[in-house]
Amino acid sequence: MTDKTLTYEAARDELVEVVRRLESGGASLAESMELWQRGEKLAQICQGFLDGAKAQVAQARPAPTED
């Protein structure tokens, strides 16, 4: 699955795994850097989904009226 075809849930689950691996402390420095970079990318993907959902909710809400 490429980054462009990841669902929010898949990106979130992979991010959780990246964080778990980083927190375990067993990775080399090089591997930790790769994990960190992957985690940053996954966080951006998740944030994009959340921003899109927020925009859809805002668009679906009726505009506030002045009394």
Results as ranks from 00 to 15, higher is better:
5 T>Q: 08
25 G>P: 04
9 E>C: 04
10 A>P: 09
55 A>M: 12
33 M>Q: 14
59 Q>E: 13
20 R>C: 00
33 M>V: 11
67 D>P: 15
47 Q>K: 11
64 P>D: 04
20 R>Y: 12
16 V>Q: 10
24 S>A: 15
58 A>V: 08
62 P>G: 07
36 W>D: 15
9 E>S: 08
67 D>R: 15
55 A>G: 12
26 G>R: 11
44 Q>S: 09
15 L>S: 02
17 E>F: 03
21 R>Y: 00
40 E>C: 12
38 R>C: 03
62 P>E: 11
34 E>C: 03
58 A>L: 13
48 G>D: 04
3 D>M: 11
35 L>R: 01
15 L>D: 01
6 L>D: 02
66 E>K: 09
39 G>V: 02
32 S>Q: 10
33 M>H: 06
32 S>Y: 02
51 D>T: 07
3 D>C: 05
65 T>I: 14
50 L>R: 09
29 L>P: 07
51 D>Q: 14
41 K>L: 08
44 Q>H: 09
16 V>T: 11
3 D>Y: 05
65 T>H: 10
34 E>S: 09
65 T>K: 13
46 C>R: 07
20 R>M: 09
44 Q>K: 10
59 Q>L: 14
44 Q>N: 13
15 L>F: 06
56 Q>C: 10
57 V>K: 02
67 D>E: 15
37 Q>N: 07
9 E>Q: 15
21 R>D: 05
9 E>I: 11
2 T>G: 11
3 D>G: 03
51 D>Y: 00
62 P>M: 08
11 A>S: 03
66 E>G: 13
30 A>L: 15
35 L>F: 01
46 C>K: 07
54 K>G: 07
8 Y>C: 08
7 T>W: 05
66 E>A: 11
46 C>A: 10
55 A>L: 14
64 P>K: 06
24 S>V: 13
50 L>T: 15
6 L>Q: 02
33 M>D: 11
42 L>I: 01
47 Q>E: 14
22 L>Y: 01
57 V>N: 05
38 R>K: 08
33 M>A: 09
38 R>W: 02
65 T>V: 15
